[in-house]
């Protein structure tokens, strides 16, 4: 391998290491990967730096020995040039994109492709609980407390799989205004959808970006967030359908905070949990546009 090739490799490796540092410095890293991955990515930057330094060292060494290198390996230079250009430009592409183009956030365009969920986590959906065995029996057995608890348990029947969501739902139910928190965005939407009958008419506040489908018409839109597990390739959009008379004044991907009453509306043949907005305001996009599943939820 020639000095030039070692130098190119040095530049590429150092480039990737610097891209990682750059993205952490500008705070844009949160757009690409979840917080739990950050340490690993930082460590990989160190690995890349080490490899870069090795390439520099090898380049210097190859230069000293360049007369020897001429004899045995120049036969492949001409034939491999096309391949090398192809390979190295592949490595240059993400570097160029990362350093030179401004980073936006994932928004409606991708949400439409990935498929918006209006019901929280589909694993713990109402259909799932309806089919599971006799949800009420467990809860009535469990409640030997006072009257208040009994009525709450009747409102929020649970089985072994929905016990955590039932507990969250009870907490939410006691709040005069339910603010959908960033930390438990999906869990909260799931609990609301699961026990939607109990929450009818409750006040709720939710922030997110505007997402719209054609079928929503002029007075409906969704307020939504992307939920990410590891990286944005696995991010999925979750949101709540809302109604607002002048919904078309808000463009897709505008960030808003909406307050309103929970109800049900019919959307594309399904009964969907809906917020009838009474107040809506624009807000600046948050530092991290994503929400993350709460890994401690239920543990």
């Amino acid at each position: 391998m020639t000095t030039t090739q070692h130098l190119i490799r040095f530049l590429l490796l150092a480039g990737f290491a610097m891209l990682i540092v750059y993205l952490f410095r500008t705070g844009d890293m949160t757009l690409f990967i979840a917080p739990k991955m950050e340490l690993l990515v930082k460590l990989s930057a160190i690995g890349l730096y080490a490899a870069a330094i090795y390439q520099l060292y090898a380049a210097l060494k190859a230069r000293r020995k360049s007369h020897a290198a001429d004899c045995d390996c120049d036969h492949q230079h001409s034939s491999s040039r096309t391949k090398n250009i192809f390979v190295y430009s592949l490595f240059i592409l993400p570097l160029t994109l990362g350093f030179l183009t401004p980073t936006g956030t994932l928004g409606s365009a991708l949400a439409a492709k990935k498929g918006m969920s209006f019901t929280g986590n589909e694993m713990i959906s109402r259909s799932a609980t309806e089919t599971s065995s006799d949800p009420v029996s467990l809860s009535t057995k469990g409640s030997s407390g006072n009257n208040n608890d009994n009525t709450l348990d009747e409102l929020f029947p649970y089985d072994e799989y929905t016990v955590d969501h039932a507990r969250l739902a009870k907490q939410l139910y006691e709040q005069p205004l339910i603010v959908v928190p960033e930390g438990r965005f999906i869990e909260t939407l799931t609990a609301l959808d699961l026990y939607r009958d109990a929450f009818m008419g409750k006040e709720i506040e939710i922030s997110g970006f505007i997402y719209r489908e054609e079928e929503m018409g002029e007075d409906r839109m969704a307020i939504s967030r992307f939920a990410m597990n590891c990286c944005s390739a696995d991010a999925l959009p979750y949101g709540l359908l809302t109604t607002w008379p002048k919904a078309n004044e808000y463009a897709e991907d505008d960030w808003v905070k909406g307050t309103g009453k929970l109800s049900i509306s019919n959307y594309m043949g399904n009964e969907i949990l809906t917020v009838e907005l009474t107040k809506i305001e624009r807000i600046p996009a948050p530092a991290s546009p994503y929400v993350y599943p709460d890994l401690e939820f239920g543990f």
């Binding site: 993205l23 690409f32 990515v41 890349l48």
Partner: peptide, 8 residues
């Protein structure tokens, strides 16, 4: 993001 996630 796919590249960054795969790097480590």
């Amino acid at each position: 993001s796919i590249i960054l996630e795969a790097f480590p």
